[in-house]
Simulated scan of single mutants.
Amino acid sequence: MTLSLTETANLDALESEAIHIFREVAGEFDRPVILFSGGKDSTLLVHLALKAFWPAAVPFALLHVDTGHNFPEVIEFRDDIVARHGLRLEVAHVQDWIDDGRLTERPDGTRNPLQTVPLLDSIASHRFDAVFGGGRRDEERARAKERIFSLRNAFGQWEPRRQRPELWNLYNGRHKPGEHVRVFPLSNWTELDVWNYIARENIELPSIYYAHDRDVYLRDGMWLTHGPWGGPAAHETVLRRTIRYRTVGDGSCTGAVDSTASTVEEVIAEVAASRLTERGATRADDRLTEAAMEDRKKEGYF
């Protein structure tokens, strides 16, 4: 794939900014961690972290809040990346919180909203003071409000009024004991930027990001697939279709899109023509209310 000079310069600038952020955090904080699910954005974070500290090892652990409803291909990919690069992975299993009564299974079967408590408990128990996430401003309105360094209070909550100015790429990491900072190196990237960079750097991703045949059923305008989260309902017809996933997460609320894009170049062409973000098109949990994401962020979610 050949990029124009403008596209190349844009990717170079985004990469440089992200690497600067990683190094800034390494200098300012004592116990940073990278949230890593095996999805494309968190995989890109790991790739950039490896670049930022090469030839030294990445000085941060990885943390995955595992709902237990993930796609098997993604979990296998996650473990392969960790083993290949000698990284340290901490996994918080939502099922553990359900088993001991700290969480209760939802009637609708989705576990995405249940991630917040295990995330905050893990941050507190490991004393993480900076938490990298792969959120981007183009994904969703609440994330568009987020600073690159986002202060969270002692309860892990996001308070929009406490957002700090970030002039001239100067980041304020000051926080009180018990507080922590969420860090978003991909804030200024778009979905198309991500895919162009994946193509340029030849970054491997889970196979479900590319077109494949799968049994799916239609719910709320999205193609969902059967899994431990339940479904389909009696009135929902299962069909064999050629689909791919634009984003990955809890299988109960992450939909697929009809697609024949089986290569990076074909995915880039598809994304360039799309008028919906990947979350807007395929994440049912963002459709619960107009402010669903912002409400969850205020509770401690990413």
Rank of each mutant, 00 (worst) to 15 (best):
M1C: 04
T2M: 07
L3D: 08
L3H: 11
L5M: 09
G27A: 14
F29G: 08
P32L: 12
F36L: 00
F36N: 01
S37G: 02
G38I: 02
T43H: 02
L48E: 05
L48Q: 03
K51T: 04
A52S: 13
A52N: 05
P59N: 04
H64M: 10
H69G: 09
H69T: 07
V74K: 03
V82L: 06
H85N: 15
E90L: 09
V94A: 04
R102Y: 04
R102A: 12
L103I: 09
G109Y: 09
T110E: 10
T116W: 02
T116L: 03
A124R: 14
S125P: 01
D129T: 01
G134D: 00
R137M: 02
R137G: 05
D138Y: 02
E140K: 02
R141W: 13
K145P: 00
F149P: 12
R152M: 08
F155S: 14
P160F: 11
L167G: 05
W168K: 12
N169P: 01
L170H: 14
R182F: 11
F184L: 15
P185K: 00
Y197N: 05
Y197G: 08
E201R: 14
I208T: 13
Y209S: 07
H212N: 06
D215M: 13
R219E: 15
G227Y: 10
G231T: 09
H235L: 06
V238D: 06
L239C: 07
T242M: 03
T242W: 01
R244I: 03
Y245P: 05
C253H: 03
G255K: 01
A256R: 03
S259R: 10
A261Q: 03
V264A: 05
A269C: 01
R279C: 15
R283F: 11
A284D: 13
A291I: 08
